[in-house]
Design a protein around this nucleic acid. Structure first.
Length: 534
RNA sequence: GCCCCUGUAGCUCAGUUGGAUAGAGCAGCGGUUUCCUAAACCGUUGGCCGGGUGUUCGAGUCACCCCAGGGGCACCA
C-alpha cells in the first residue's frame, strides 16, 4: 500500500445503487483514512494513481463523494459478457467448486400419516431450490427425505387403520386415543379388504397391526411421493427410520456418545449433556419407562449422514421445530463434528388467502388445504414461484387469487413472458436459438442505454447465484429475474430485433439469446418452466 | 417467564452481508397497439425504515432497551 504500512482493509467492489456512481465502486479509501490519518479523498487519490487497471476492462475511474472510487466498465468487457453467455449456455452461472463438498439436503420429511399440506409445499420448493443452488455452485448434492416410519405416531396410524377395517366389516370399533380420524383411512380399509380378503379382518390383532402398519406407511408414502413428483420435486433417497433401527443405529450412537463421555443417568432416565455445548439444558434420551425419546434416533440419523460421507447436512424444518435446533446443534457439536456440518433452515408458517379471506387449516371442518389442492388450482409454476419469491424465514401469505390470475398482476408470468418473447423472435425469424453465435458480430452496435444496462445485469448472474447459494436465499434469484425481465420487456418494446440493419440485427439476436439463456437458467434453479409460448 | 422469527409506501415484500439522494411489484391516477405475443410499455402519486439510546467518517443494516404480531418451551412427536 502507498504508505508501505500494513493496514488491514478489505477491498470490496460493489455495485452502486445509483448508476451515476459507476458500474463498480469501493469505499476502501474511507476505511483506510482513519488508520492512515489522512483525508479520505487523498487516500483515494493515492490508490487511483497506483492503480493498474487492465486495458479494455475499465473505461473510467473517478473519485466521488466523500472518497468513493468509482469504475466504469469498458465496452469490450460488456461484449465479453455476451460471448461468455452464448458459449456457456445452460452452464452459464454454474461453476465448479474446489474441492466440491458432498451436501445432504433433507426436506419435507413428514410422517406418512396423511396428505402433504401447503406448509410442506413451501418446504419442498425451498429445499429443492437450496439443492439446485448448491449444485450450481459446484457441490454434490443429495436430496433426502427422512421417513418417520417407526414410533408412536405410526403405531397410532396402524391401529386407526385396523379400527377402520373392523368398522368396514360391521364391527363396533372406535378410533384409538390420539389416532387418525381422516376419511382416507376408511377408504384405505375397504381397499385392503378388497385386495387382500375379507378374512383380513379376522387376523390376530398383533399380526394384523403389523400388516396395517406396513400398508399404511407404504400407502401414505406413495401418496406423498406422487404429489411431490407432480410438484416437480424428486428425491435421491428416502431414508427410513426403520432401517436406522435395523442397522443398529441406536446402539452405535449410544456407544459413541458413551465413548465421548456425554451420557449420564439421573432419576432413572438417560441424559445427554447438550447443555455444555450450547443448548439451554441437558436432554433425555431414554425415558424412565425405558423407551427412547425422538431425540436419540434423530441424532443417530444425522450420524449416518456423517458416516455416509457428507461434509454438510442441511435440514429444512418447519417453524414448529425451531425449538429443536439448539439441541441438535449442540449434539452435533458434542460429537465433535465441525461447526458447519449441521445447519437447520427454518421455514416459517404459510397462510392461505382466497377471495380476500384466510383459508383456515382444519382437518375437522374439511377445509384443509393440501399441496395438491394448491398446485392443481394455481399450476405448479405459480405455486413454486410464489413459495420462493419470499424469504423462507418470514411468514408468508399465499394469495391464491393472485397466483391464479393470468394477468400483469402475477409476477410468475411476467418473467416467463419475457422468456417467451425471446423465443418468439427466433421462431418468427426461423432461427434455431442454439445456432445464434457472437462470432464475427459487432456487439458495439448495442449502444442503447437499455441494452447496455441489460448486458451489465446479465453479467451479474453468476455472482447472484453465488450469493443466493451462500445465504440459501432463492428469493434473490426471483428478484434478479424480475429485474432482467423488466429490462428485457422494455428493450423488446422499444427496439426491434428482426428487420433492423443486418449488423444490428445480428447483434440484437445475440442479446436476445443471452437474455433467453439467463432467464431459462434462473427459472430452472427455481424449478419453474421457461415456456416457448404462452 | 425464557428463546427464535418478523416489523420498510394503501397491500405484498426487496434492500448486494455498515456506504452516496431508501427501491420493486400490485393497488391508485394519466397515457401507448398497422410493428418479433398489450400476460407488455411509458409517465405519475405515495416513506417518522415500529419507538428510543448507543457504536462511527457513515446505520434500514450492528449493540442494548422498549412496543406490536407470530412461533417455540416437555422424560410429546
Amino acid at each position: 500500500m502507498a504508505a508501505g504500512t500494513a493496514v488491514p482493509a478489505e477491498v470490496r467492489l460493489e455495485r452502486p445503487r445509483d448508476p451515476q456512481h459507476g458500474d463498480l465502486a469501493t469505499g476502501v479509501a474511507l476505511q483506510l483514512a482513519r488508520p492512515l490519518k489522512k483525508k479520505p479523498r487523498d487516500v483515494a487519490q493515492a490508490i487511483v494513481q497506483q492503480l493498474d487497471a487492465p486495458q479494455g476492462l475499465v473505461s473510467k475511474v473517478e473519485i466521488a463523494g466523500p472518497g468513493f472510487i468509482n469504475f466504469w466498465l469498458a465496452e469490450e468487457a460488456l461484449s465479453n459478457v455476451l460471448v461468455t453467455i452464448l458459449e456457456q449456455g445452460a452452464k452459464y452461472g454454474r461453476r465448479t467448486a474446489h474441492p466440491p463438498q458432498r451436501i445432504n439436503v433433507e426436506f419435507v420429511s413428514t410422517n406418512p400419516t396423511g396428505p402433504l399440506h401447503v406448509g410442506h409445499g413451501r418446504g419442498a420448493a425451498l429445499g429443492d431450490a437450496f439443492a439446485a443452488l448448491l449444485e450450481a455452485t459446484g457441490h454434490e448434492v443429495t436430496r433426502e427425505f427422512y421417513v418417520n416410519d417407526a414410533g408412536l405416531q405410526i403405531e397410532r396410524l396402524a391401529r386407526s387403520l385396523w379400527a377402520r377395517i373392523q368398522q368396514a366389516v360391521g364391527r363396533d370399533a372406535g378410533i384409538p386415543e390420539g389416532g387418525y380420524h381422516g376419511e382416507y383411512l376408511a377408504e384405505l380399509a375397504s381397499e385392503v379388504l378388497e385386495r387382500e380378503s375379507p378374512a383380513f379382518a379376522d387376523l390376530p390383532e398383533r399380526e394384523a397391526i403389523d400388516r396395517c402398519r406396513e400398508i399404511a406407511v407404504r400407502h401414505g408414502l406413495e401418496d406423498q411421493t406422487r404429489d411431490l413428483e407432480e410438484f416437480g420435486v424428486r428425491f435421491d433417497l428416502f431414508y427410513s427410520e426403520t432401517t436406522l433401527y435395523q442397522e443398529q443405529g441406536i446402539e452405535k450412537t449410544l456407544a459413541e456418545l458413551e465413548r465421548r463421555d456425554l451420557l449420564y443417568e439421573r432419576d432413572g432416565a438417560l441424559w445427554l449433556s447438550t447443555g455444555a455445548h450450547g443448548d439451554a439444558k441437558d436432554r433425555v434420551l431414554r425415558k424412565q419407562d425405558g423407551s427412547y425419546t425422538y431425540f436419540l434416533p434423530d441424532i443417530a440419523y444425522h450420524l449416518t449422514k456423517r458416516d455416509r460421507g457428507f461434509h454438510r447436512a442441511i435440514d429444512v424444518w418447519g417453524a414448529d421445530h425451531h425449538g429443536y435446533v439448539p439441541r441438535m446443534t449442540a449434539a452435533m457439536k458434542a460429537l465433535g463434528l465441525p461447526e458447519e456440518f449441521f445447519h437447520a433452515e427454518i421455514v416459517q408458517l404459510v397462510r392461505v388467502m382466497r377471495h380476500g379471506e384466510e383459508v383456515r387449516f382444519s382437518k375437522r371442518s374439511g377445509e384443509f388445504v393440501t399441496l395438491r389442492d394448491l398446485f392443481e388450482e394455481t399450476g405448479v409454476d405459480a405455486a413454486r414461484y410464489f413459495f420462493l419469491m419470499r424469504r423462507g424465514d418470514a411468514q408468508f401469505i399465499f394469495d391464491i387469487d393472485l397466483a391464479t390470475k393470468q394477468s400483469e398482476e402475477n409476477p410468475v408470468y411476467y418473467v416467463q413472458y419475457a422468456h417467451t418473447r425471446m423465443a418468439g423472435i427466433f421462431r418468427t425469424g426461423g432461427l434455431e436459438p442454439t445456432s445464434i453465435s457472437a462470432e464475427g458480430v459487432d456487439l458495439s452496435l448495442l449502444s442503447e442505454d437499455v441494452e447496455q444496462d441489460l448486458i451489465k445485469q446479465l453479467g451479474q448472474y453468476p455472482s447472484v447465484v453465488e450469493g443466493a447459494a451462500r445465504a440459501l436465499e432463492p428469493h434473490r434469484i426471483v428478484a434478479y429475474l424480475e429485474e432482467i425481465a423488466q429490462h428485457v420487456n422494455a428493450w423488446y418494446h422499444h427496439h426491434r430485433v428482426l428487420g433492423s440493419d443486418p449488423p444490428l440485427e445480428r447483434a440484437r439476436l445475440v442479446l436476445a439469446r443471452a437474455s433467453q439463456i439467463v432467464l431459462a437458467n434462473g427459472l430452472s434453479l427455481l424449478g419453474v418452466t421457461a415456456p416457448e409460448r404462452m
